[in-house]
Write a protein that binds this DNA or RNA. Structure first.
Lengths: 176, 176
DNA sequence: TATTGTTATACTCTATAACTATA
DNA sequence: TATAGTTATAGAGTATAACAATA
């Protein structure tokens, strides 16, 4: 175990540090790739959830994305202003707003996925297909072990208040 | 290439996303482990640089850590208040402040390194030594390819102004 | 005139609480 | 009384510019 001797190891050999660097770099890269799409990372994450769960209330969306309901208000505001979602009244409970994707919002989804593809390619472009798959597998194992929800970004997560622990499976959110 | 088919791949299979998740998680974990040490991540990064470069001016430290000199003022203030560094006047150039580690500051370094060890262990605890080394190698390659400086965290980096591009090698900074 | 360090201002994000309208 | 959504306020963090002392 000579490569892992303790104490003064340079930071490039510290997985914690490199993960932190790469996480930040990944965010920045994806931000950049998302500019031509016209939404932010956070907004895209929200649209991605709605793709699988159209018509949920803001409260339910808060729960899935693990953000505070106060923040959800602003997020829906932004997307509604951009014409990507719309709020509809629920006749059964007129307090609740059902959030629906518009056609424009739905049309935007594949563009965002393409940006994600491009982001993965840009980050892992130097790796062979085999190395890439090895890396993905190891990252997924580490994320599992850390109990990170498969599609919720911890950067948006909100500790306090009312958040029903639940995982949306394939749908998800983007990040920070 | 069946595991990598495009379009609706869940986020857990998106390396960009998982890297972002894990980067955030790593930050949070290290923050936690650093609490008993009594410094923030950023402060520890600074102390780590000083370990290799005691007595540099604030301007030089700004350059190494790639933060703005205005921010460096506050960082040195914090550390000086905590008694971990001290500013000394340079007789040759009385504008410049040489920043020196105090004994207390130096004594704190191994505690921070131990926290880093613990952070790595907590994050990668589930992996075998071999898998761990494989992951570290792949992460380092990706970081190299992204032109991330081996010991500078991009979250602190400052775009504008005067920053002499330089790498401190073993010394470094922590982050965000 | 340029440079080192400092301070002040503004802007973004987020956290908390308080408010309204329904139930 | 509790809940869905909204609004307002305060606090961190950061970016920009302007400033005093020295070169």
């Amino acid at each position: 175990m000579h490569a892992f001797d303790r104490s003064v190891r340079p930071l490039r050999q510290r997985p914690s540090f490199v993960l932190s660097q790469l996480g930040f770099h990944s965010d920045r890269t994806f931000d950049e790739l998302l500019v031509p799409v016209g939404v932010t990372r956070r907004q895209f994450g929200m649209l991605r959830v709605l793709a699988d769960a159209d018509g949920r209330t803001q409260q339910e969306l808060s729960s899935v994305l693990r953000v505070h309901r106060n923040v959800m208000v602003g997020l829906v505001d932004e997307l509604e202003t951009a014409g990507l979602v719309e709020r509809r009244r629920n006749p059964a409970d007129r307090r609740a707003h059902a959030v629906h994707l518009t056609d424009r919002g739905r049309a935007l989804l594949p563009m965002g996925e393409a940006a994600l593809d491009a982001c993965d390619d840009r980050l892992l472009g130097a790796l062979s297909a085999a190395d890439r798959e090895t890396l993905c597998g190891l990252l997924a194992r580490v994320a599992d072990e850390a109990h990170l929800l498969p599609s919720v970004h911890p950067g948006y997560e909100h500790a306090g208040d009312e958040l029903a622990a639940e995982d949306a499976g394939g749908g998800g959110q983007l990040p920070r």
